[in-house]
Amino acid sequence: MISFAFYLAFLLIFVVFAVYAERKTAAFIQNRLGPMEVGPKGILQTVADLLKMLQKEDIRASAVDIIPYLLAPFIVFAAVFTGFAVLPVNADLSGSTITSGVFFLLAIVSLDVLGILMAGWASNNKYSLYGAMRSVAQIISYEVPLGLSVLCVIIISGTLDLHQMSVLQSGGILSWYIISHPVLIIPFFIFFISGLAESNRTPFDLPESESELIGGYHTEYSGFRWGIFMLSEYGMMLLLSILASILFFGGWNSPMEKIANGPIWSTFWLLSKSLLLIFVQMWVRWTLPRLRVDQLMSLSWKYLTPISIVMLFVCALWKLWLIG
C-alpha cells in the first residue's frame, strides 16, 4: 500500500519533469535552448502546459463509439500502473509479494494494447485505426523477445519475485547481474530495445508517428483524456526502466557494498538507475529515425526473437555449469 502511494505520487511528479527533460534533451542535441521562459530556465513550462491542458474542452467527435472512446485512456493507464504493484521501492518496501511477480507485471502491462486498440477503433478515424493496429502488431511482436530476455534473468536468479531478485544482487556493484553474469549483457540490450517498442517510443513510435498518422490512436483525444495517454506513455517508460534496473543493475542496492544502504539511499539508488535509463531512452529518441513497419517486424522476428532464444539456451547452460 505504501509502495502504491509512493509510485503514484512519484509517477505524477516524474511525468511533469520528464516532459521538461525530454524537451531540454531534444533541444541540446539539436543546438537549441528549449523552454526558457516559464520559471528559472523554463523548469515550470510543463506545469503551465498541464494547467492549459486540464482547462481544455473535452472534444468528442460525433461519430465516435462513445463508451470505448471514453474508457480507453483509463484502461491504458490502469494497465500500465498496475504493473507498478510488484515493484519494490527499497529493502523494506517490497511492493506486492505475488509469487508470479515479474510474469504478473508483463501480463498486466500487455493489457494496455487493449486500451490502445479501443481508442483507435472507437475514434472512427482511419489514421487512429492504423495507429492502433500498428501498436497491437508491434506490442504483440515485441512481447516475445521482452519475455524471453526477462526469462534469462529468471533462470539465473531462480525467482520471479522482484524484491527477492534485488536481495540476491546485494553486495556492491560486482554482484549486479549484468556484471556478475556477463552472459546477461545481450539479454539486457534485447530487453531495452523491446522495452522501447513496448512503450511506443522512438524509433518504434509507429503507432503515434506525428508525421504520418498525426498522433495515431490518440488523434481524436484532447485535454485530460489525451493527458492520460501521455501519462501512460511516460509511466510505461518509467516502469520498464525500473524493471531493467531491478533485473540487471541490482535494483535498490548501492554500488558500494557497505556505504549508503539506508531506506532513503536505496530508494535513491533505484530511482537514479531508472532515471539514467530514461535519459538513454530520450537520447535514443533524438538520435534514431523511425523504423518502417516491415523493418520493425523483421527486427523483432528475424533478429531479437532468435537471438533471445539462443541467449535463453546460453543462460541455461551458464546456470547449469557455472552456478550449479
Binding site: 534533451t25 542535441i29 537520447w283 528475424k302
Partner: peptide, 26 residues
C-alpha cells in the same frame, strides 16, 4: 545475417555518439 547485425550496431553506436557530443556541447 551477421553482417546486418554488425552494421546495425555500428551505425547505431556512431549516431548515438554523435548526438551525445551535441548534448554536451550545449
Amino acid at each position: 545475417y551477421l553482417g546486418n547485425i554488425s552494421q546495425g550496431i555500428q551505425t547505431t553506436w556512431k549516431g548515438m555518439m554523435l548526438s551525445i557530443q551535441y548534448f554536451f556541447q550545449a
